[in-house]
Design a protein around this nucleic acid. Structure first.
Ligand SMILES: [Mg+2]
Ligand SMILES: [Mg+2]
Lengths: 564, 564
DNA sequence: ATAGTGTTTATAAACAGATAC
DNA sequence: CCGTATCTGTTTATAAACACT
């Protein structure tokens, strides 16, 4: 089920925060993307979660795959040392959305509340404004924690900006300003090229449409309605959730006097070239923006809208209205047996649970379990199956004590602020090595890699499987006029087939080693109708998928005659 | 008319070569892109074409716009000096497709004709194989003219590769190999990252579809049929056109023994980083790949398929079959009165003609002349109007002495080979300045620029308005389910309106200064049906478009009620 | 365990066209 | 009014991160 993700949450995490983030994420994606989340509590044992994860990963596929590849040059490092580093690095090498926003929010001091000149008409009601960097950044060391780069992609920020306007239109300049206002990083430290990137994103992504006034004078940027998840920055993080903090008035705006372009100082510029690459590498991967976290936030809030509980809607195909407004009525959840197949579909929020491949969540009822295992994971695969047309029946178990959201604040054990994780100001004599020479003469790999660097040395960046995804809603294939295409046209592209019988479900968990089956309670968060429900899930872990050649192939042609 | 381009050809150019290139270009683009070309002979005077162009440009908008921006740092340069440099630089600073291919071809010595191991089934019949660099490139100076980067974009090369297979399918590895075989540059000098770029292009562009065998074992890359222009390398340049040269047998294949990856030697690698940026800047712009040229090729060949003459087909909306196979019957050409509007739509092949803005090509018959002037140019604008639904009537004038393709070989005046236009091997101490420090501290411009460099100092890169375009066929907007969108949805996005009366046509040329009107013979090359026809065109040059605010606005709401 | 394949984001850049100065 | 500079918009190239095979 490409629209469903399994989220394993440690007992120490703040469930409310997790739900908030997931809700925002779900609203982003829409029908095709993940809009339902199965929340499972972390492993029962209170052991070091990282250790559990690393152990689990060692016996599963290669969870650290990417990192392993990156760290290929540092093979000499003893694995034991690596492991010892993991324990803390997992939690401190990256900041999470929530952390980042929380920090931003607490530091929004009482700045002058003043609108831009022509901001009369737009009431972007978000209260999150990044601190404008106390104006001391002329000192050269523009490294206050406030001017850190926000954890959002350009695409996401553009959506935040446009969706903040009631009419959902913005000129380019307005987008610039909105971003600068809300993320001072771009005004203060980013190179001017960031605007180029904004424009690039506007052009590149089909979800951004340019509209022109009848006279052709002004042109606005809008979001293609079918693809708009109406995500706003305040959806990503609502400061009002914290009952203790005074909810900022809707109109809270901070005006930053320094409006000029101030091309990012020049003290240390013009020295040598290669002054570029100043910025933090800025992981291009959206998935990397949200990473394992520990939440020092308020303890035990549960539901933003408690009325939404126990009401699960159907994926609604894809012709559904893009509006995330509640859509009660449908009562099923697409707890696909066809979960991604690989552990990558499991989102480990903070304390990991044994990662599994070929993991499946089965509900005790008869429900379709697609056979299409390959290409099905909600992974980076672009060519994915359309959302299943049939609504999967699901069993819902009302009430029961579940998810004793620990709310323990033991997180203080880890340094949570990490003053400034950027030792890349002058590590190598500034301009000498643009590309870290570690990589040696030639990567030999056709995918250039950055070579492990201080701030990203831990091979456990693994758990960072995204929860935030800002990509547009993918509408169904639209039934292209391919007419008589070739014989083996990629199946998972057109066929809405998800009707395999239950046999497939049961036959999947058969790895004797890591097979781990248990009936467990879970939560289902459906962002299509803002519902949160309890479910009883039958989780089957099969540690590997050597069945590529065995049953898998058989089932394909067996249950999908179109493929023969 | 976004699908039509005006090509001004100097008398000294080889028409056949021009037609070949244009044909290839046209087949690339399809319905939406330029598939019809109006060929006009260059200015009658035999004066220095460059001078003519520069004079013309000086009185028109800002032909050197981009370059002016790039050269912004070198404002101190006296314009007179700049002009003196133009004269030669226009012709020697870039190699054209034809030149490049011609050079490749002449140097394909009798290498061992031998197939790859498993090349039995595929008969890619292209005869162009780039010389494998005589095996001397171990000397370090891998700079033979043969290992120069081909003038094609990755997207184009991938299309070449895939379309060379009869079944139009290729695995990634096959694509790699095809490109390495046909363009040794990538095997010999390119960094391994070029494969990353290939994969990136495959994923990024929707026109490339991945198909999988039923067993899911192998996956092939194909081209979305609706978008496939079936371009092959041999379409870009047919060596058999030259009657003097022995037409290579279809099966001519050159096997290059050096199959290993040989990661581009290492002698000078690993010294410092920043060894990157070795390659020639490699203009990202496809449009830059074809530039003003002088053709020392065979003189007076005319039509590849003379039978195709005088048969012009209609744009065929966009539901037309993607096959560029002849489609005789339709006899109209969309000689849009609505030509781009700016001089940028005029392709100056070698000797320029006075560039004009608001240039129009009118046929003496009544024909629709769309008013939508803004956003209409066949420029880089993505959001362009769909091809007009109405077929524009056109007058065709059979026979007549036209286009006395000069065939003069006065081109020898310009150095034609330009041994190796790459002084970028060790201009700066290798690794010191990754980005040319010329740019100063901060470009201040949000679009990073490369700062003028030796090989691109002439502000007259202007004439390089593209003729080669390999982007996929753009199918019509598909009538998105935007339902009731906002009031001012960009008009040139959905409306098939091209019905403005003739008044618009005549009223457009009113600039007293540069107005230049004349009835002229021209050729029309329609790549949709491989036809070449003569026409009589009424060319109206109006030097400016201040009418943006005048008649233009009026006419819009006047003739397009939907816009009101 | 590694390398190959595939997807996505970031950034630089070239260039076209429009507008502002 | 003109020429230039900047802004806006589109595309390509390249590096990189990461997922999956
Ligand atoms: Mg767009
Ligand atoms: Mg693709």
């Amino acid at each position: 089920m490409p629209d469903t993700q399994v989220v394993v949450i440690p007992k120490t995490a703040d469930l409310q925060s997790v739900i908030n983030v997931l809700t925002a994420k779900g609203k982003e994606r829409g029908v095709e993307g993940p809009n339902k989340f199965i929340l499972l509590s972390g492993s029962s044992g209170s052991e070091d979660g990282v250790e559990a994860l690393s152990r689990a990963t060692s016996e599963s596929k290669n969870l650290l795959g990417p990192e392993a590849g990156v760290a290929g040059d540092a093979k000499a490092l003893p694995s034991s040392r690596l492991k010892s580093e993991q324990d803390c690095s997992v939690l401190n090498n990256s900041l999470t959305n929530i952390q980042w926003l929380g920090r931003m929010n607490t530091q929004v001091s009482g700045a002058e509340v003043e609108k831009k000149e022509s901001n009369k008409e737009n009431f972007d009601s978000c209260a999150q404004l990044q601190e404008p960097q106390h104006t001391e950044e002329e000192a050269g060391a523009v490294k206050g924690p406030l001017s850190e780069r926000p954890p959002y992609s350009y695409m996401a920020m553009i959506q935040f900006a446009i969706n903040s306007k009631k009419n959902k239109k913005m000129t380019l300049k307005e987008i610039y300003n909105w971003i600068e206002d809300h993320f001072p990083y771009f005004r203060n430290v980013a190179k001017p090229g960031w605007k180029n990137s904004i424009r690039h994103n506007l052009s590149l992504h089909d979800m951004f449409i340019r509209e022109t006034t009848p006279d052709g004078k002004i042109s606005f940027w809008t979001i293609k309605p079918e693809a708009n998840r109406c995500l706003t920055l305040d959806q990503v993080y609502k400061p009002t959730v914290d009952p203790a903090a005074p909810s900022y008035p809707q109109t809270t705006q901070i005006y930053y006097p320094q409006q000029q372009k101030r091309v990012m100082a020049d003290p240390k510029k013009a020295t040598t070239c290669t002054t570029e690459r100043k910025m933090k590498p800025l992981l291009p991967r959206t998935d990397s923006y949200l990473v394992p976290i520990q939440l020092p936030l308020t303890p035990s809030l549960f539901l933003p809208s408690p009325a939404a509980a126990l009401s699960l809607s159907t994926p609604q195909q894809s012709t559904a209205a893009p509006n995330p407004i509640s859509r009660t009525g449908c009562k099923r959840l697409c707890i696909a047996p066809k979960v991604p197949k690989s552990e990558s579909s499991v989102v480990v929020i903070s304390t990991p649970v044994p990662e599994v491949k070929e993991e499946r969540v089965c509900v005790p009822v008869s429900e379709p379990c697609s056979s299409k295992r390959k290409e099905m994971s909600s992974s980076r695969r672009k060519q994915r199956l359309v959302t299943p047309s049939t609504e999967e029946p699901v069993l819902l178990f009302p009430d029961s004590t579940f998810f004793d959201s620990g709310l323990a604040s033991d997180v203080s054990a880890f340094q949570e602020v990490e003053p400034d994780p950027e030792p890349r100001r002058d590590p190598q004599l500034e301009g000498e090595t643009f590309k870290t020479p570690i990589k040696g003469s030639h990567p030999a790999s056709s995918t250039p890699s950055k070579a492990l660097e201080p701030w990203k040395i831990t091979p456990l960046g693994k758990g960072s499987r995204s929860v935030l995804d800002f990509s547009p809603i993918r509408t169904p294939p639209q039934r292209h006029e391919h007419s008589g295409l070739s014989f083996s046209s990629t199946p998972f592209k057109e066929l809405p087939l998800f009707n395999s019988p239950r046999e497939l479900l049961t036959s999947c968990s058969r790895d004797p080693q890591t097979a781990n089956r248990s009936l467990t309670e879970g939560l289902v968060l459906d962002t299509m109708n803002d519902s949160l429900s309890k479910i009883l899930v039958d989780i089957s872990f099969s540690g590997l998928e050597d069945d590529d050649l065995g049953m898998a192939n058989l089932s394909w042609s067996q249950f999908i005659p179109e493929l023969k």
